[in-house]
Amino acid sequence: MFPSRCLIAVTSLLTLSIAAVAQHPPADAPVSIMVVANFHMSNPGHDIHNVNAGDVLQPDRQAEIEKITGALASFHPTEVMAEWPADVASQRYAQYLNSTLAPSRNEVVQLGFRLAKASRLSHFYGIDADGDFPYEPVQVFAQAHGQSQLLERANVEMEASTQTQTALLQSKGITATLRYLNDPVLLSHSNSFYRQMLSVGAGTQQPGADLLTAWYHRNFLICANIVQNAHPGDRIVIFYGSGHAFLLRQCVTETPGFVLVEPNSFLPQ
């Protein structure tokens, strides 16, 4: 039998070894990533179709957001990322932790910062990238070549989805809206808007393809920021506008070592 001192020493070594493994997971440990598609809570009106989000600073909305981030915290994220430039996100998160950030309706603050703080994270990752969205050339070509109806149909579908989101917010709240936005079937259908743009063009004039090239380029830059800031064993939550979610999910599923986690498995019912 081991003397008691030896047993204590062995136990201590085992404890240290387990702690070391937890802090430094194997190089091939998978990166689990949850992409949470969201709507713009501060209503900036920058998109072609915009949700009427109301005032998320109202007490009932704040209580709901607290419940949402509490549920997502059970994923135990090691990093939280969102749709802001890196320098802006880092600076404002530091202010948020110090309680010096002015009240904000922005979803990065309401969802991202709140979850990161609840998870006791000292850093917040802004992973957004600038990009053009050359939609006007698509409209001009479509009008000149009798394709206006194609754009009208595509936009009617997008507007219907936007109105559904607004109605859900008003009748059932933020949780129901997020669960709607994160339905994989809906995300795939929503991405078809961009694919329809490939019909607009002919010969050497391809404004639809140019639009998609610009859109994919921006999302590839965002994907690169995810990949470059991920580490083996990480559990990452990413908050992004729903229009990006399909491609960011594709980024995760097609990157070796990354595992996609469905947010609707964690969002409250």
Rank of each mutant, 00 (worst) to 15 (best):
H46S: 08
V261Q: 06
R195C: 01
A160D: 09
S74D: 15
L150K: 07
N225Y: 06
D210K: 01
F258L: 05
N225L: 04
A224P: 01
A230L: 02
A209T: 01
P207G: 00
A89V: 04
R179D: 09
F258K: 04
I222R: 01
A202M: 14
L178C: 11
G203N: 07
F75K: 04
M34R: 01
D55C: 01
E79C: 08
S90T: 08
S17D: 09
Q139I: 04
R5Q: 12
H24Y: 14
S74Q: 15
M41Y: 12
L178A: 09
E152C: 11
L16P: 15
T253G: 06
A154D: 11
D183K: 05
R5H: 14
A37Q: 08
V140S: 14
W215P: 02
W84G: 08
Q62I: 06
V140P: 10
A230V: 00
T100Q: 02
V51T: 03
L198S: 05
E254W: 05
E152A: 15
D234W: 12
S265A: 10
P59L: 01
L14A: 12
S122M: 10
Y135R: 01
G173A: 02
I65H: 12
I238V: 15
S32F: 13
S90H: 13
Y96K: 05
A142G: 11
D128E: 15
H40K: 02
L260C: 06
A116P: 00
H145P: 14
Y125F: 11
M197N: 02
E83C: 14
V138K: 03
P263Q: 11
Y125H: 10
V35H: 05
A20N: 07
P3G: 07
V36C: 12
S265H: 05
S99N: 12
A118L: 07
F39M: 06
W215R: 01
K67F: 14
Q62V: 07
L212A: 01
W84Q: 12
P77K: 06
G54P: 02
Q110A: 07
Q170V: 05
L168W: 03
L181P: 14
L248W: 09
V108P: 12
V36A: 05
R105F: 08
Y93T: 08
A89D: 11
G146C: 13
Q165V: 05
F266C: 14
S171Q: 11
T255V: 03
